[in-house]
Simulated assay, not measured.
Amino acid sequence: MYRRLVLGGAALAVSATMTLTAAPASAAPAFAPASAAPSGVANKLFRAWLADDRTAAAKVATPAAVASIFGYVYRAPDRFAGCSGAVCRFTHTSVRVPGGLDGLAMVVTGSKVTKVYQSRHVTKPSTVATRLFTAWRRGDRYSALEIASTGAVKTLFKVKYDPRGVAYHFQGCTPEPKGFSCAYSYEGGAMLMHVRGTRSSGYEVSSISYLAD
Rank of each mutant, 00 (worst) to 15 (best):
E204D: 12
L211C: 00
Y142G: 02
M193S: 08
A61E: 03
V60D: 06
A148V: 04
V153D: 01
P24W: 05
L145M: 11
L50S: 03
V159P: 00
S143Y: 00
A64G: 14
G8T: 12
H121C: 03
F90N: 03
R54N: 01
A135V: 09
A51C: 03
W136T: 10
D78W: 04
D213T: 13
I69M: 13
I69N: 08
C88W: 06
S35P: 03
T93I: 10
S143D: 04
L156S: 04
A86K: 14
S26C: 01
S94Y: 09
R79H: 14
T62I: 10
S207F: 04
G172R: 08
M193N: 09
T134K: 15
T17A: 12
T91Y: 00
P175F: 01
A58F: 01
Y210V: 14
L156W: 03
V128I: 14
T155E: 14
L20S: 12
R54Y: 01
Y74W: 15
S185R: 15
S143M: 08
F80S: 11
V205C: 08
G8F: 06
S206Q: 13
L20H: 08
A34P: 08
K160M: 05
A152M: 10
L101G: 08
G103D: 11
L20K: 10
A212G: 13
Y2E: 11
R199W: 06
K44L: 03
A30T: 15
A13F: 06
A11P: 02
A65H: 07
V87T: 15
A135M: 08
S94A: 15
A144K: 01
D78I: 10
D102T: 09
V60Y: 07
A57G: 03
G189T: 14
